[in-house]
Amino acid sequence: MIKACNLIHHYGVRPILRNVSLEVGQGELVVLMGANGCGKSTLLGTMAGLLWPIEGHVEIDGLQRRSCVEAEIAIRKKMAYLPDHPWLTLARTGREYLMAVGQIYDLPTAHIMDHMERLLELFHLTDKGDSTMQSYSNGQQKKIAIAATLITEAPILLLDEPFTGGLDPSAILALKNVLGSLAQREDTTVVMASQLPEIAAATAHRIAVIQDGVILHYDSPTDLIKSQNSENLETALNDILNPETKNLLKAYFKGKELSK
């Protein structure tokens, strides 16, 4: 279980998180959604322990982050974080990298090797597995970073924009299905930042809609759609985040007709 309590964070004096509180239950898949710069990555980075909030704290399974050495080590070992721009060791091959990541999570070597081959196959990287990651395209580097996060088999996964970064349609489908499968499991908690309503609708148990560092809504996709009397999640999100869009569209098309 992840519990973010009254998080306040700002870069310089620019506020990013304004008293954000969020609870993610064990086995839940939560998607953070909102406009660019609204604080999704900051919230995720704070949960991942990479950022320290100005105020508030994060608890993972009842342990407060950075409260003591033993608690922090325990937290770090049960969590895997995929940043939007992962830092890969490009001089290593994909297989070496996945093995190294699997080993720091203390997984048995035979198990890592089996999982690694399945992941490489899933993301169409089997042929590239023995090439250095420097030779990978942007999309392939993103795929190997996702595979590295998945190979950890950590009970808590924090994914920052996993669907961006040049993923091809088959990789998007593969990841969507993997996340869908994880959402069915009781032992894996996933918090993901995403801009894609269709992905959120298909995978999320709950969606946190963030605007200017404040959580506006935190509901299941169905309840979110209902609350806005919308047809689907995309329009519901648009109604929450950009209510003026409908009027702007009307004005745009009205002006177009007048100019004819």
Binding site: A48, G49, L50, R76, K77, A80, Y81, P83, P86, W87, L88, T89, A91, R92, E96, Y97, M99, A100, V101, I104, Y105, A148
Partner: peptide, 10 residues
Amino acid sequence: EQVGWPFCTI
């Protein structure tokens, strides 16, 4: 082997 960031924090 190197594990890159952020895995190095583990």
